[in-house]
């Protein structure tokens, strides 16, 4: 570019800015830095979007209902998703160290049971139904609840126990499996749900 080219200034941005009294160099530099910052934060936001999040609210504590949240949570963790399972009401029993070993299937109220409700309501029928289901689970090579809890915790799933229901049920924070998050409530659950791609109530 020749130096006597001042009459046609649209040749080089830098030289143009320097020669143009409307834009000073410092301002241009500041703008460039700002564009870089915005590009960087955009790149970070894109990365954030790739990370899928799932929040499950587990409210049921029967033997059969303990499975769906744990299976979905451990599988989602295998996908590399960030997973929170918020356990409340009877769902707390899934995380309770003692009670989780003794979750029962209800023989009553399930029309798929091979016995009528009148018989299913007899003492011991829940235990029998649970034993039958446990045997089926063993025969099928389905994981135990214990295994799924351990797997979920190992793979970074945040298993949360609702503080209000811990107190309501007269449980102690130490009653739960190691690694379970306590001291959380509805607001925490909602916050996770709001940030999640998938929200499930089980």
């Amino acid at each position: 570019m020749s130096t006597d080219n001042q009459t046609t200034p649209i040749e080089d941005g830098e030289a143009d800015a320097e020669s143009n009294p409307e834009i000073d160099t410092a301002e241009l530099q500041a703008l460039r830095e700002r564009v870089e910052e915005v590009e960087e934060s955009l790149a970070e936001a894109d990365l954030g979007d790739d990370q899928k999040k799932m929040t499950i609210v587990a409210t049921q504590g029967s033997f059969d209902m303990a499975y769906p949240p744990l299976i979905l949570a451990s599988t989602a963790a295998a996908f590399g998703w960030e997973v929170v399972v918020f356990h409340t009401f009877w769902g707390l029993d899934i995380l309770h160290e003692e009670k989780s070993k003794d979750l029962k299937l209800s023989a009553v109220g399930n029309p798929n049971m091979p016995v009528p409700n009148a018989v299913a309501a007899l003492p011991g029928m829940d235990t029998m139904a649970t034993k039958m289901m446990q045997k089926k689970i063993d025969d099928n090579g389905t994981a135990t609840i214990e295994e799924l809890i351990d797997l979920s915790l190992e793979s970074g799933v945040d298993l949360q126990a609702c503080q209000m229901t811990i107190e309501l049920m007269d449980y102690d924070e130490d009653d739960f499996h190691d690694g379970v998050t306590t001291g959380v409530g509805a607001a925490t659950a909602l916050q996770h749900m709001a940030e999640s791609d998938i929200q499930l109530l089980v």
Partner: peptide, 14 residues
Amino acid sequence: KGQSCPMPIVKTKQ
């Protein structure tokens, strides 16, 4: 072998 959902996936990931 002998293991069912979700174990094949979870073990594969591990």
